[in-house]
């Protein structure tokens, strides 16, 4: 009980330290937090066609971008910064102190949560002010939005930690991680309307959580009857939840089993 308290307390302290460090690295703030907003401006301004009655591409894109934001702040950010921390000796030093692994993960999760809230707020704000994103009025949609964000960022966090063993070095990490994220975004219907993609691409994307997250976000932000335009003719919201939970479990198991404190 006491040790649980200590773990939580140190986890909180690590979270605030992580946030402080994050905000002091200007390039990471721009890359992680503002890049999706910049993309929103570019795509939202270029593609203003109507893709269905009452639905513009920019609305479609904002929904996808909010889902992508969770991938950026969680998966991408962690899979790049953890290898860097491994190279710099941060992790090795922490390993030599009484701080527990759980505290380290709590700190990371807190950082991701705060960044995710900031990013989602930014995207919602600019999306609704500049690109006619309709904020839902029904409580049930906000409820869906909330669990999608929580489940999506949890999934994104554990997969980021799990993937952090893949890059061979901190310096090469973003070259390994960023293309994966960008390709997934293309395949998952963030930059294009999902149903306009080749079938094989759709099927490939359906293995990964981002496709389900973007679809879920569309169910929140696009008119209800747009559901008929989706692959299955419905939002498949239950299926989204199921896929995200499965990936969360897979990510959790892999990160616990494979997490490495030092490079060798």
């Amino acid at each position: 009980m006491n040790s649980l308290k200590v773990t939580l307390r140190i986890g909180l302290l690590r979270g605030s330290l992580e946030l402080k460090q994050f905000l002091r690295q200007r390039e990471s703030v721009v890359f992680t937090l503002l890049f999706p907003v910049i993309l929103l401006f570019i795509f939202g301004s270029v593609f203003q066609d109507t893709i269905a009655p009452g639905v513009t591409f920019s609305q479609y894109f904002v929904a996808g971008m909010i889902a992508s934001g969770l991938v950026n702040t969680g998966f991408q950010q962690l899979a790049i910064t953890i290898p860097m921390e491994r190279d710099s000796g941060t992790l090795k030093r922490l390993r030599g102190t009484p701080m527990s692994v759980s505290s380290y993960f709590i700190g990371k999760a807190l950082l991701v949560t705060i960044l995710m809230i900031l990013q989602t707020a930014l995207l919602l704000f600019f999306g609704s002010v500049m690109f006619d994103l309709n904020l839902p009025t029904e409580a049930s949609l906000w409820w869906n939005f909330t669990w999608l964000v929580i489940l999506g960022s949890a999934c994104s966090t554990v997969l980021g930690i799990a993937f952090s063993v893949v890059p061979k070095s901190g310096r090469g990490a973003s070259a390994v991680v960023s293309p994966i994220v960008i390709i997934l975004q293309f395949f998952s219907g963030v930059f294009f309307v999902f149903t306009s993609l080749p079938i094989w691409m759709q099927q490939f994307a359906a293995i990964f959580p981002l496709k389900w997250l973007t679809q879920g976000m569309r169910s929140v932000f696009l008119p209800e009857d747009f559901a008929t335009q989706e692959v299955a003719g419905s939002w498949e919201i239950g299926k989204s939840a199921l896929v995200l939970i499965l990936w969360l479990i897979v990510g959790l198991v892999i990160s616990i089993k494979t997490f490495k404190w030092s490079r060798e």
């Binding site: 302290l13 330290l17 690295q25 710099s88 090795k92 030599g96």
Partner: peptide, 29 residues
Amino acid sequence: RNRIGIVLQSASDAADLSVIETVSHFANY
């Protein structure tokens, strides 16, 4: 690990924190 201290060979972590922030954070452990 409460009873040991380790000074590693090379570490370049925590570069964006100040000396006092780093030391007082580690004191919490």
